[in-house]
Simulated assay, not measured.
Amino acid sequence: MSIDSGLCIGSGQCALTAPAVFGSDDDGFGLVRPGSEDGRGDPLLNEAVRACPVQAINFAED
């Protein structure tokens, strides 16, 4: 899982929806929190992916 920094507009929806997986950098853009790179343990992960207004989160379910 990753966030495409070229697409991210810093809306913060990912961090609001799944704060255990996502946060924001010093400039306010989304980031995947260290240690939660796969995020599969968070039940809100799929909702966070859907909440991104520019689909900047790259995540493929197995």
Results as ranks from 00 to 15, higher is better:
M1K: 09
M1L: 10
D4H: 03
D4K: 06
D4N: 00
D4G: 05
D4E: 04
S5M: 14
S5C: 05
G6Q: 02
G6W: 01
L7A: 14
L7W: 04
L7E: 08
L7V: 14
C8F: 04
C8H: 07
C8R: 01
C8K: 03
C8M: 02
I9K: 11
I9C: 01
G10H: 03
G10R: 05
S11P: 10
S11L: 08
G12D: 04
G12Y: 07
G12K: 06
C14G: 05
C14T: 04
A15L: 04
L16P: 04
T17P: 01
A18G: 00
A18C: 06
A18Q: 08
A18E: 07
P19F: 08
P19M: 01
A20E: 14
A20T: 14
V21F: 09
V21W: 02
F22H: 02
F22I: 05
G23S: 11
G23N: 09
G23H: 00
G23A: 12
G23I: 05
S24N: 12
S24L: 12
D25T: 09
D25P: 06
D25F: 04
D26C: 02
D27Y: 09
D27K: 10
D27I: 05
G28N: 12
F29L: 14
G30C: 02
L31W: 00
L31S: 00
V32W: 03
V32T: 07
R33A: 04
R33N: 14
P34A: 05
P34W: 14
P34G: 09
G35R: 04
G35V: 06
S36F: 12
S36G: 10
S36P: 02
S36K: 13
E37H: 11
E37K: 09
D38Q: 12
D38W: 15
D38M: 10
G39W: 08
G41W: 14
G41T: 12
G41M: 06
G41F: 13
D42L: 01
D42Q: 06
D42M: 01
P43A: 00
L44D: 15
L45W: 12
N46Q: 13
N46W: 13
E47N: 07
E47Q: 13
A48F: 09
A48T: 06
A48H: 13
A48V: 01
A48Y: 04
A48C: 08
A48D: 09
V49N: 00
R50C: 10
R50W: 13
R50K: 15
R50F: 12
R50N: 13
A51S: 10
A51H: 06
C52L: 08
C52K: 03
C52A: 01
C52G: 02
C52P: 03
P53Y: 09
P53C: 11
P53M: 03
V54Q: 05
V54E: 01
V54Y: 03
Q55G: 11
Q55E: 15
A56M: 05
A56F: 05
A56L: 03
A56N: 06
I57E: 07
I57C: 02
I57T: 11
N58L: 15
F59G: 00
F59S: 02
F59T: 04
A60P: 10
A60T: 10
A60I: 11
A60N: 14
E61K: 00
E61G: 04
D62K: 13
D62C: 01
D62H: 11
